[in-house]
Amino acid sequence: MYHRPLVVSHPQRRTVMQGQAFASDSVDEEFTTVLGSCVSTCLYDPEVRVGGMNHFLLAEPPSANPSAAIDVHYGVYLMEVLVNEMLSRGARKHRLKAHLYGGANVNRTMMKIGSINAEFARGFLTREGIVLMREDLGGTQARRVDFRPASGQVRCRLVEERLAPPVQPTTRPQKASGDVELF
């Protein structure tokens, strides 16, 4: 099987915001995001050289308030979306390699949202049989993550507190519509 060369001098950057998940096999693309208590999963299938990244705000909706509408901010939704995006581009679940980032508890006076998000993401990967290759989770500092989906290369850097995103979003993106295949 022929693979395109992976050398790219200046890839196109695509910012992955809260509530989003993208996948690509383009050597010219790089996904980037900044995380506080949120978590991003980077998935990669080395055989078909396709990768993807998501960015979720909270792990799961409160059990006391189940909603009929899908909320794109929850990991329970975005993890499935990311896996489905990967599969639609030729990836196979048994070959997926994962990296997890974020999950900081940036505000000491708030509930440990970052820790809850991190545990959810680890649990999801375990339940789905996806190998976790690396994680950089927890602490109190925000992170910037850059991911090249066609090569699986990831760079994670801590962000100075003064440059970190606010703990709570000022506005939430609109709720998603459409079909999601849960497996």
Rank of each mutant, 00 (worst) to 15 (best):
R4D: 08
P5N: 05
L6S: 14
S9G: 05
S9A: 13
H10G: 02
P11Y: 10
R14V: 13
T15I: 10
T15F: 13
M17I: 02
Q18C: 02
F22I: 03
E30I: 01
V34Q: 14
S37K: 03
V39I: 13
V39T: 04
C42D: 09
D45V: 10
V50K: 07
V50P: 01
V50T: 10
M53A: 07
M53Q: 13
N54C: 14
F56W: 03
F56P: 03
A64G: 12
P66R: 09
S67A: 12
A68W: 09
I70T: 12
D71W: 05
D71Y: 02
V72H: 11
V76R: 01
L82T: 02
M86K: 05
M86S: 05
S88P: 00
G90Y: 05
A91W: 00
R92C: 00
R92F: 00
K93Q: 14
H94Q: 15
H94N: 06
K97Y: 01
H99E: 11
Y101Q: 11
Y101P: 02
N105Y: 05
N107E: 13
T109Q: 14
S115I: 04
S115F: 06
I116M: 09
I116C: 00
N117G: 08
A121T: 06
T126W: 08
R127N: 10
E128H: 13
E128G: 02
M133P: 02
L137G: 06
T140V: 13
Q141K: 13
A142C: 13
A142W: 00
R143I: 03
R143K: 15
F147T: 00
R148M: 13
P149L: 08
S151N: 13
S151A: 14
V154E: 06
C156A: 15
C156N: 10
C156I: 06
P165K: 03
P166E: 09
P169L: 11
P173C: 07
K175F: 13
K175C: 08
S177R: 12
G178M: 08
F183L: 14
F183C: 07
